Amino acid sequence: MNAPLLTLTASAAALFSNADGDVLIVNPTYKSYWNLPGGAVDRDETPQDAAAREVREELGITPPIGRLLVHAWVSSPGRGAQVLYIFDGGTLSAEDQAAITLQESELSEYRFCPPDAMEPGLIPPHLTDVWQAALTARTSRHPAVLTVRL
């Protein structure tokens, strides 16, 4: 007898910062936690293209999306698994920051937060290691591959 196939989704996000090194985070209207700008990878779309599309849709800006920082496998018993890609969005110019226009149906606000000063409960606890790996990969120039089991 064959086991049922795994339910798998893919998401892509971009890690942006300002000139001070603070990280851009967004507050989704449909989640309890802040997140990086990004979302689901659509059929026939690469993860990098999905990150660029989601940033354009959510923030109204089109900065270049750079190299892959993290490839993470996030799994939970009974809920399937998610493959998460985080790309380097680089440092947003003052012009890009001024042009941010939130997609109000999905995001209520955004802010830049020092990466070492994220308050407990601000970001999804199960993604803390993933975010830290993205920050480390950005400076080390080596992408990270992680497995997160919930």
Rank of each mutant, 00 (worst) to 15 (best):
K31R: 14
L8F: 03
G38P: 01
A50Q: 03
I25E: 06
L135W: 14
P47L: 02
H126D: 13
F87H: 08
S17D: 08
T91L: 01
L68D: 05
G21K: 08
L122I: 03
Q97C: 06
L84V: 14
R149K: 13
A134V: 04
E109N: 15
G39Q: 01
A40R: 13
S32R: 12
S32M: 05
W34Q: 14
S32K: 12
Y30R: 13
A144Q: 15
V145P: 06
S140C: 05
E57I: 02
F87D: 01
S108A: 10
A81G: 15
S76T: 14
E57G: 03
S11K: 09
S17M: 05
E58L: 15
A3Y: 07
W131E: 06
D22K: 10
A3M: 08
G78V: 09
A10M: 07
N18T: 09
H126N: 12
V83M: 11
I123R: 14
N18R: 08
L84K: 09
A134M: 07
L36W: 02
D42G: 08
E109D: 15
V41G: 02
I61Q: 04
I61E: 00
V26P: 00
W73E: 08
M1D: 09
E45A: 01
V23P: 08
A99G: 02
R111P: 11
R43P: 01
Y33I: 05
